[in-house]
């Protein structure tokens, strides 16, 4: 366990929320703005999200797994794999609603930094953003995988608090990333 989540500064952090639902976006925007983030913009589908991401002005992407059906993970993968994309290293938080087999693994293997199970709570969102800010992971760029190193220990919910019963983190013992990750630490 890592202890309480650290305070973070989100003033003027630019966030793109890629979610098919207008209400979900408005809730997320409202919470993020109360944390200080600004601007918080909305993409309703993969095409809109891709266009906004490629402008290179987004600091953080929050993407729903169920964007355009179940295309959230493929959007993340495309962002990570596009070497000409200025935003390919940005932190990405994947949100999951109803969870089916493999959704977490797919999200992780696409290159998401973290997974957050919906519904959203202010504490749950804050703690994950704090965790992402304070535990940056080496960026792996290999033929089979591009994204934050998947090999890290699961030490429980970030901050040890604000965990919902259906919540979980990405954790893994991904083969093949240990050497490169430890080299960069």
């Amino acid at each position: 366990m890592q202890g309480p989540a650290k305070d973070i500064n989100l003033q003027n952090i630019s966030v793109l929320v890629a979610d098919p639902g207008e209400p979900a976006f408005r809730i997320t925007r409202s919470i993020l703005k109360s944390f200080g983030a600004d601007p918080v913009v909305h993409a309703r589908n993969v095409a809109q999200a891709s266009k906004l991401i490629e402008r290179g002005t987004v600091d953080l992407l929050i993407v729903n797994y169920h964007l355009d059906g179940k295309a959230g993970a493929s959007l993340v993968r495309r962002i990570r794999e596009n070497r000409r994309n200025p935003a390919r290293h940005i932190p990405i938080l994947m949100t999951l609603g109803h969870t089916t087999i493999g959704a977490v693994t797919l999200s992780r293997d696409a290159g998401a930094n973290m997974v957050l199970t919906l519904p959203l709570s202010p504490g749950g969102l804050y703690d994950r953003l704090s965790w992402m800010a304070n535990h940056p992971r080496p960026f792996v760029d290999q033929e089979k995988y591009v994204g934050p190193c998947r090999r890290f220990k699961n030490t429980g919910a970030p901050g040890g608090m604000e965990r919902r019963s259906m919540d979980f983190d990405i954790d893994d013992d991904a083969e093949g990333e240990a050497e490169t990750a430890t080299a960069a630490g």
């Binding site: 305070d7 973070i8 500064n9 989100l10 003033q11 003027n12 952090i13 200080g36 600091d59 953080l60 290293h89 940005i90 932190p91 953003l129 704090s130 992402m132 800010a133 304070n134 940056p136 992971r137 080496p138 960026f139 792996v140 760029d141 190193c149 990333e177 490169t180 990750a181 080299a183 960069a184 630490g185």
Partner: peptide
């Protein structure tokens, strides 16, 4: 070789809030 890539998010978020 994997390396930690600084992002604007991590740089700003770790400033004094």
């Amino acid at each position: 070789e994997a390396r930690i890539v600084p992002t604007r998010f991590t740089q700003i978020a770790r400033q004094k809030p």
